[in-house]
Simulated assay, not measured.
Amino acid sequence: MRRPGTHRPRRAVLTRVAAAVLALIAPLTACGGQSPEANAPAPVTRFTENGVTVALSVSDWQASKGTLTAVFTPEEGFHLYSTELPATGIEGVGRPTSMNVTGALAAAGEPKAGAEARDISLPGVDAPVPVYPDGPVTLTLPVRAGADGDATVLFGYASCSTGEGCTIPVTDHPVHLRVTAAGATPAAP
């Protein structure tokens, strides 16, 4: 029996501290105590070209339908152009961030960006140019498969920095996939 004014036993204090810590971090973790990144689809493939790394994954594959997710990660301090930018840019400046499919896959909607574009003014360009904030941009594209077979995902983008200029635009960088009822995986070279 505890006397008034005495401290609780260490075990009880440690148990309450541990419970409080778990309550604080629980919203930050996914089921099973894993981080949210652990539950994200694993990249099917990735490549780096002209200062941007693109990681492609496939998720929610059911009944020959799924979602392609591409994370475009430019070098630090660089931004990407909006998906809404015309194919040749604005007054020749910039190239849209894009993801298109051909072959056994067809788009089942428009690509959606996970970031809001903002307009910037550039010297020598009369119209505003829509860009995403510096850093990674995620595009998602719902797709459907007509039949098993080969598909190609074509990526396009350009990255720029206010201090370091722009990289050479990338147009139609191909990523080849093999599509089956089970999903889409990298095609054998």
Rank of each mutant, 00 (worst) to 15 (best):
G149D: 00
P186H: 08
T15D: 15
I120Q: 06
T48V: 10
P174R: 04
L105C: 01
R10G: 15
D126L: 10
E164W: 08
T138K: 06
P86W: 06
E84R: 12
G114T: 05
G183V: 05
N100P: 00
A26K: 03
G165Y: 02
L22I: 07
R10C: 07
F47N: 09
I25C: 13
A23T: 13
E76L: 06
Q62S: 15
D119E: 14
V17K: 09
S159V: 06
L24D: 08
A55S: 13
R46Q: 15
V125M: 03
G165P: 07
H79F: 13
A115V: 09
W61K: 05
G32C: 08
H173Q: 14
G94P: 04
D134E: 12
A30L: 11
Q62G: 02
V13R: 13
E49N: 12
A182E: 14
M1I: 14
S59W: 04
P86F: 11
Y132F: 14
A113M: 04
L139K: 05
T48P: 09
E91C: 03
P169Y: 03
P86M: 09
S35A: 13
N100S: 13
P169G: 00
P142F: 08
T167Y: 13
P123K: 06
A70Y: 04
G94T: 00
P36E: 02
P41H: 07
N50M: 10
L122F: 05
V179D: 00
P41L: 13
P142D: 03
E75K: 13
V153N: 01
L154V: 02
G33A: 10
V129N: 00
V44P: 08
G146Y: 05
P111H: 01
T88N: 15
L177N: 09
T29L: 15
D119T: 10
G109D: 06
L28W: 14
G33V: 06
R46E: 15
A188I: 07
G5L: 13
R10D: 14
W61Q: 05
V137K: 00
P130D: 03
A158I: 08
A12K: 12
A12D: 14
P123C: 03
S57K: 03
L105R: 00
I120S: 02
T53L: 04
A20H: 11
G94I: 00
P123T: 11
P41E: 11
P9M: 09
T73Q: 10
